[in-house]
Amino acid sequence: MFDISPAEWTAILLSLRVAVIATLVATPFGIALAWLLARRDFWGKSVLDALVHLPLVLPPVVTGYLLLLSFGRKGLIGSFLADHLGIVFAFRWTGAALACGVMAFPLLVRPMRLSIEAIDRRLEQAAETLGAAPWKVFFTVTLPLALPGVLAGMVLGFAKAIGEFGATITFVSNIPGETQTISSAIYSLIQTPDGDAAAGRLVIVSIVLAIGALIAAEWFAHRATQRLHGN
């Protein structure tokens, strides 16, 4: 039962690569956006907030299709990136990472935003009176205090990214070795006669990864409280 075949390993490793890249690329944007939403009031803030959460409520197939329209080879952004920077998303693993990153983004931003909102702003004032310019305050006080929330957001985003299915398969299809992640491999396997055992193994791998991520996120949240109390 637990002999994971090379083809299954390929899907698992591809999923890990896609999810790691998606999480790492999304994180700086996530932090910036979380800070903006937690700290700034500006025109169109609620629109931006809604936009960030859109992938959470849209049917994934719609998000995938919109990605195909904009980042596909004929899409406005896709053709620009392909012509000028040589970056191609369509039917590549990079496209899977993009789809997973977009789908995971709302989950990634939320804990980051909450942890930034929880920081006592008087500590930032104290830092300023000690001679720290605003960007130094951010990197020496705000970000370290928000770090457990940032890590929790990354873990949740990663867990979402590794399981993403609808948007990925719509945008980059289901090509073994290139875009076939764990989820799309399971989907193919359960439509194949005799695929049940293999599908079962991948299902167990998915469950283990998901539970591990939840435990890690919980642990980071616990660390956050300790950190804010200076123990």
């Binding site: 008087r122 500590l123 009176t129 000690l130 720290a132 310019a133 205090l145 950190r227 804010l228 109390h229």
Partner: peptide, 20 residues
Amino acid sequence: VPTYRRRIGYVFQDARLFPH
């Protein structure tokens, strides 16, 4: 002149030490 360039020290009622 912004606070961080005033070269002042400020001791608050609630200390405000950096907990991390």
